[in-house]
């Protein structure tokens, strides 16, 4: 009883705290100075029509690198905890409908994922979203054929190569252009074209491959999670 009361007090307190935070929230009319700088100068400085991409890859590129590193650490720790020696689980065969549908859908999903991260600087989307779509195609493949397995070595090579290329592009930016991850390393090109915005599409390509292979690796590791010792 006292527990429930305490919980109620906690929730009510949190609710009041959050509500006072927003109750006198005034609807904004203008962008704050830094956002309006990004809106005004973003296209000129980066060449990316999608301003969110300009912020993610150029202005906060270091954050994105850190984010990719965190994802890599997660995948590594997962692999460390869920390691299984023989790597074989017996799963029930999936239904014929799922198998046939996955053969039809997988290429389309992969194509959609590649489209999303290749066009990240022009349309809504980007490396992380596209990578997640790529990984979803691999997860569908796992659901359809649970006893087949994607080569872990291939995933690791893709992931390491993409991560390394990301850092190398960043360092090349220091040497050849204005700074770490500077997108003016390559000419900006004409705005709105697929090949434009300097190195942003290349960075997003590597981010997409890296995120896709990492998420697929996480699912692979969770799939082969060890069963109870007693079994």
């Amino acid at each position: 009883m006292i527990k429930k009361l305490l919980l109620f007090v906690l929730l009510a307190g949190a609710g009041v705290m959050f509500w006072t935070g927003i109750s006198d929230y005034e609807v904004k009319q203008d962008l704050n100075p830094i956002a309006s700088y990004y809106a005004d100068q973003g296209l000129e400085e980066t060449g990316a029509a999608n301003l969110v991409t300009a912020v993610v890859v150029r202005y906060r590129g270091l954050d994105t690198l850190g984010e990719v590193v965190i994802l890599f650490l997660t995948a590594s720790i997962l692999g460390f905890f869920l390691i299984k020696r023989d790597g074989k689980n017996d799963f029930r065969e999936s239904s014929e409908i799922l198998k046939t549908a996955s053969r039809l859908l997988e290429p389309i999903i992969i194509l959609a994922g590649v489209y999303v991260f290749v066009n990240g600087h022009l349309t809504p989307g980007g490396g992380f979203q596209g990578g997640a779509i790529l990984a979803s195609a691999l997860i569908l493949a796992y659901l359809a054929n649970p006893n087949d397995s994607i080569s872990k070595t291939l995933l690791k090579i893709t992931e390491s190569f993409s991560g390394l290329s990301f850092v190398i592009i960043g360092v090349l930016g220091i040497i050849l252009a204005g700074g770490f991850l500077d997108s003016t390393l390559l000419p900006a090109g004409s705005i709105g074209n697929l090949i434009s915005a300097g190195v942003i599409p290349i960075i997003y390509l590597f981010v997409g491959l890296k995120v896709g292979s990492e998420l697929a690796g996480i699912v692979t590791n969770l799939k082969y999670a060890p069963k109870n010792e007693s079994e």
């Binding site: 904004k28 809106a39 912020v55 906060r60 997660t74 720790i77 997962l78 992380f128 998420l215 996480i218």
Partner: peptide, 29 residues
């Protein structure tokens, strides 16, 4: 346009959230 910075931050936060969730599920396993 609306403010692009919170959207970029949420993009980062979603990915970090996914990583943390996967890690917690690993510990649960």
């Amino acid at each position: 346009v609306v403010d692009p910075i919170p959207q970029a931050m949420v993009l980062t936060a979603i990915v970090i959230g996914l990583g943390i969730t996967a890690l917690m599920l690993t510990f649960v396993v």
